[in-house]
């Protein structure tokens, strides 16, 4: 489904990603771990199409089609979803209207009619229940005044609404207490099926106890220095990141 080939990217002339190779197939969960500053968030931003970063070499291919020249919104329509490490607050736009706009834009891109209000309402109820969200958040301005945990839950709620093909969860566990973490992980697991894929970006192994990866990759200094099965996460937890610096 997703193929990243020798990807080099940076910001203002500074190289951050220095040759990433990664292949993800439908139905798989990949975890990307690494110390601070290793390029984890840059990788997720570049896949989503953030224009702050410049791709200098290599390619990102989704379903046999290069994404490099594709606008962020079109990538979203093709099924790329990024759960942000720091979701932005948008005062004046309610969560409900935001997600409604997002869904209808996607449908428009697919040549579908707008989702009737009745169905939208049903979908919102179903997905907010799945994530045990307090409904009062839905009528509030998007993320405005939300706690860190509420923002992350809101991200996964939006993911549930949009049903992406490729979901990238960037440090979704940060800011979540253990109960919220379980709820969010449960939500992700319920959305998981044989046709989609998930990339979990995390610093700690904690989230991977609940969202169990098929593969774990260790990112260090802009490169994947080690890949393995889920046991690699435990090894990292045990030995710490200093261990990989010497690989």
């Amino acid at each position: 489904m997703l193929e990243i080939k020798n990807l080099h990217a940076g910001i203002e002339g500074k190289d951050i990603l220095k040759g990433i190779n990664l292949t993800i197939n439908a139905g798989e969960v990949h975890a990307i771990m690494g110390p601070n500053g290793s390029g984890k968030s840059t990788l997720s931003s570049v896949i989503a199409g953030n224009e702050t970063y410049e791709v200098t070499k290599g390619d990102i291919i989704l379903d046999n089609e290069s994404l490099l020249e594709v606008a962020p919104e079109t990538r979203a329509h093709k099924g790329v979803f990024l759960s942000f490490q720091y979701p932005v607050e948008i005062p004046g736009v309610t969560t409900t209207n935001f997600i409604k706009t997002a869904i209808n834009e996607k449908r428009k891109a697919q040549g579908l009619e707008e989702l009737p209000a009745k169905d939208m309402l049903k979908l919102i109820r179903e997905k907010s229940t799945l994530l045990e969200m307090d409904r009062k958040f839905l009528s509030r301005s998007l993320n405005e005044g939300f706690s860190g945990g509420e923002k992350k839950r809101n991200e996964i709620f939006q993911m549930a609404m949009l049903e992406p093909k490729l979901a990238i969860l960037d440090e979704t566990d940060s800011g979540l207490d253990i109960d919220a973490l379980k709820i969010v992980a449960n939500g992700v697991n319920k959305l998981k099926n044989k046709d989609n894929a998930v990339i979990v970006i995390t610093h700690y192994q904690r989230l991977l106890e609940y969202i169990v990866p098929d593969y774990v990759h260790v990112l260090y200094n802009g490169k994947i220095v080690k890949s393995g099965g889920k046991e690699l996460a435990f090894e990292l937890e045990e030995k710490g990141y200093d261990w990989i610096k010497n690989l």
């Binding site: 606008a71 329509h77 979803f81 891109a109």
Partner: peptide, 10 residues
Amino acid sequence: FYMQQRGIPK
């Protein structure tokens, strides 16, 4: 960018 990522054109 956040909004574009959710599929809303620029």
